[in-house]
Nucleic acid binder design. Sequence first.
DNA 1: TAGATTGTTAATCGATTAACAATC
DNA 2: TAGATTGTTAATCGATTAACAATC
Lengths: 227, 227
Amino acid sequence: MSQPKSKPPLEPEGAVPKAVVNRLSLYLRELLRLVRDGHQTTSSSHLGNLLGFTDAQVRKDLAYFGHFGYPGIGYRCQELIDAIRRILGTDRFWPVAMVGVGNLGRALLGYKGFGQQNFRIVAAFDVAADKIGESIDGVPVHPLDKLTEVVRQQRIKLGMVVVPASSAQTVADKLVAAGVEGIVNFAPVTIVLPPTVNLVGVDLAMELEQLSFAVVNRGNVVPANDD
Amino acid sequence: MSQPKSKPPLEPEGAVPKAVVNRLSLYLRELLRLVRDGHQTTSSSHLGNLLGFTDAQVRKDLAYFGHFGYPGIGYRCQELIDAIRRILGTDRFWPVAMVGVGNLGRALLGYKGFGQQNFRIVAAFDVAADKIGESIDGVPVHPLDKLTEVVRQQRIKLGMVVVPASSAQTVADKLVAAGVEGIVNFAPVTIVLPPTVNLVGVDLAMELEQLSFAVVNRGNVVPANDD
DNA sequence: TAGATTGTTAATCGATTAACAATC
DNA sequence: TAGATTGTTAATCGATTAACAATC
């Protein structure tokens, strides 16, 4: 409670809602585009308009982590980019492990977007003998048996599960046992992990379901004229 | 306002929060697994426990759409599956158009999970001459020029944008102009559509960013002991 | 019947927005 | 200076949870 000499840099006071962190990623993506287009500064209302949020929301989200703006001016784009990167942790390099070298796995190995945010898949794993030893897009494919060893050795903290639903839980458990602390699960199945491990699920069919619902219920959202 | 003879079947009274529809998809996925494992019935607390939700939430979500349960018994799995499918619209067949036959696009063409929920990519589009004419996983690859014609003719209502960020907006506009009413955008860029068109964005790097944030802020979430 | 579980209302909790003094 | 825009507080809105009568 004694007056702090310098502000603690970029860590939030208390818990941050998931939705806020999600929007932070969107702000970052938009800011990068603004800089590419030659913008030096932006404002909460400008950034909000671009993404469909209110200006108040933009300011509130950022205020969880510090004072990044200049009253009367707005935000300097590059400065805010650097700040959000520090907040998200993408100012440092993140090696990623991927399990499952099927169609989708191969596509992820070649995906350029990861590197731009400082993620790199450095090791892939599969059980199929014919895939092992291969190097795809420069990423070595190891036998699943080697998972613990490789993940430990390279201190990999993030993993992607790209195996069939039937083996997703087992694979996720192995990743966690090897020290992984965050997992993206592409298998269309619920997996359960210790509360200390972070989990994001991407179910491609579910995304389409959200759309078919919306299309079927078009216009039904408003109270509806009775006949 | 005259008393209705029979209840309107599976349409909500008013607006349904997005989060509810999302959970509906999760319930469906879990119910399908329960049936596969031989369960006949479940309950709101059973289903909730499996997914990490409260029993009240499960009941409330379903109550938006009707009365599907039996007091004292719970829910009959197959019955609830059928109901949720009608709600989501996946009781009918949905032809889908995909634009962009790169690595990720090819992987999506081979993805089995869509068919199980009654979605099928029936047409793919690209600008690259060497890809056009090809048939990948049974899906014809058309020149982008043919988009309007094919989408109109087959009355396609759902589209997937799997092109580079620089062309995502243009491609999405074309899909909308051709009659598509829902789009999944895999390009890492914000796209803007008329409010009548539904949009879901999947940004793979953003998913990892959510995890790096969580890993970096581990333990920092609780109020924090000051020193 | 007693036990279980629903659908729904009221209470709680959390997130978004509006408003404005402080600042450049 | 006047105009613009921040950070933050208080008000509003919406979503989740608890509780319970009704039901099987």
